[in-house]
Write a protein that binds this DNA or RNA. Structure first.
Lengths: 337, 337
DNA sequence: AGCGTCCAGGAAAAGCTTTTCCTAAATTTC
DNA sequence: GAAATTTAGGAAAAGCTTTTCCTGGACGCT
């Protein structure tokens, strides 16, 4: 590891170029009125000394750090990651850097991070994560704007960006009916989970709108393959008559297709299956690959970041903003080879 | 969104407490010699004004920012995330914050991030990500220490922390032989991939040390379930005689167990299967659940962060540091119910 | 009473940049 | 050729905190 040397300062650059520090600053930032020859000389000196401006000292003046904080409420997981990526993408394009903070579902840790971020004078904060319910605000009267992404704040005055799960559910049901299925059952996660509630309620609602009866009462369980398999067992032994299953997650859906195949039911011929999340490794590796609802989390992250940038620039939004989900069709609902 | 007010400064606090700024600073940082009564008064004022010290201004003095940068070479993915988490964990405990930068496998973007991080005066940099090969250093003669985690630098003078894949492979083979298997085949990812090479070579080596012949030549393909299924097809149609499969990833292993079951071979009774990565959603959902090699990426991230902290504090290391892998036993190699 | 110590707290510099305001020289205008 | 502009660049302040050094008073000692 090379001996870390001291960082060059603008004073060093000015000295090497033979100008005052003010002039050096102007030359490097394209301000003031200077001869081109002087600008070149200063830039040259900066390059020679590997000068990188001290962002901390600079923001002392500008009042902006071009930095935002991202706090996850739960541990960083499968859902928060795409959101983070989208946000990082949108912010990076605006020359902003992201402080990553993993809240671990620990309110104390979370408050510590909020303090740290404020101390570092971030220009704004994005809160993300998965939770059974919406969450309490990370703070009130904070001096910087906050946007909640994927998760939502219980305070309706806060700005939250969340997927339109009800809309996604409608797309799934409409797709199943469009391919001629009428005896649809819904298998999903734990009953206390907000997503499970929304998806299940929207399913019943949409079926009713279409004049259909559910082929069975919705089955609540866990977000796992094992539950998907088990639920199929329950349906089959109960003698339910169904030609389609809409699942609350791709993991459940994968368990479902495996169990159906093991029971001799052909997918999609006898039973069509739709998942939720469009988690590539699950949806594509299933046999057959799964049609699924994609929440477009990366786009959601970008939207959240854009809204945060707007708020930083003085145009705050408030309330829950819904991001559309879209349907990704694969073999579990179509008979292409 | 509440009207963002200006941040309070230590001058405001000093004024409210009726002391000089120097005294306020001492009171808040436990320096100097002050009456307890004064300290209390200052702390009280700080609380009233919601004062949070301006970290940028402070580091102007200390020369330290208590901040490190984390750059991923590829897009943030399944492997870099646990490494990041481990690092964030170790650093957070040391009161450091982490700048997250997603390199997207784009060298230009990467260099831009390096410049940004240096400009923000990070105390050090962690480089992580997955690559077919080790990677070129992100820079030479950088003014801050750098540690490579999971990926390794081509410069042997750099500090790299990588999993001991050869050791993990030995543990897998030894486990299979310990349960009485002698006809072992190896199915893994693309031949050009470094991990595939190491795991395959170590497999052959360990078998030779144990006086065993491989039951078939290693099969190189892709890191996917589909390839696992396909590879089993190749083995079966080729009439290979084998009683165990060691797979280069859990995805491959899952494809393998599915294909074996479909072909009527019982796992683990007829064929035992070991995966690699110990990716919970794959290993636990497989039927039967997979025995697998865990690279302990979170521990690796912690180690990398600890080594970076040591380097920041003047105790740099160099060279490749191996982190042990461990074996996680599940039903795919054992006959427990 | 006079001297030396100790204590609490203040003043000011340092750390790095940017920006505002000036000055001196160069150029234009009449 | 003198006055009015323009131009290039310098000096200094501001932004926030920490640290060093200093002062004035209280206290203890002979």
């Amino acid at each position: 590891m090379a001996k870390p040397e001291r960082h060059a300062t603008i004073t060093d650059v000015a000295a090497l170029a033979g100008v005052s520090v003010g002039t050096a600053s102007k030359a490097l930032n394209g301000r003031g009125s200077l001869r081109e020859e002087t600008r070149v000389r200063v830039r040259e000196a900066a390059r020679t000394l590997k000068f990188e401006v001290n962002a901390g000292a600079r923001s002392l003046h500008s009042g902006r750090t071009y930095t935002v904080g991202m706090i996850t409420t739960d541990s960083i997981g499968r859902f928060s990651i795409p959101v983070m990526l989208g946000a990082e993408d949108a912010l990076g394009a605006g020359q902003m850097s992201v402080f990553l903070c993993d809240g671990r579902d620990d309110p104390i840790r979370e408050q510590y991070y909020v303090k740290t971020l404020l101390s570092r004078r971030v220009d704004g904060i994005i809160v993300t994560g998965r939770r059974a319910q919406s969450r309490a605000p990370i703070g009130v009267g904070l001096p910087v704007p906050v946007v909640y992404a994927f998760i939502s704040s219980t305070d309706p005055g806060d700005c939250s960006v969340v997927p339109d799960e009800a809309g996604g559910t409608r797309k799934a049901i409409d797709h199943l009916t469009a391919i001629g299925r009428t005896k649809i059952v819904h298998i999903t996660g734990p009953e206390h989970h907000h997503s499970a509630q929304v998806r299940s309620a929207s399913t019943q609602e949409r079926l009713a709108e279409l004049g259909l009866e559910p082929a069975a009462a919705p089955l609540f369980g866990a977000w796992s393959e094992a539950w998907g398999r088990q639920a199929v067992g329950i349906l089959l032994t109960g003698g339910a008559d169904f030609d389609a299953v809409f699942c609350g997650s791709d993991q459940i859906a994968r368990g479902v297709v495996d169990a159906l195949r093991a029971a001799g039911r052909r997918v999609p011929r006898d039973v069509a299956v739709v998942g939720f999340d469009n988690w590539d490794v699950m949806a594509e590796a299933a046999q057959p690959p799964l049609t699924s609802i994609d929440m477009n989390l990366e786009g959601l992250g970008r939207t959240a970041a854009d809204m945060l940038l707007a708020a930083i620039n003085g145009n705050p939004s408030s309330g829950r903003q819904l991001c559309p989900c879209h349907l990704v069709i694969r073999e579990s609902t179509s008979v292409t080879p």
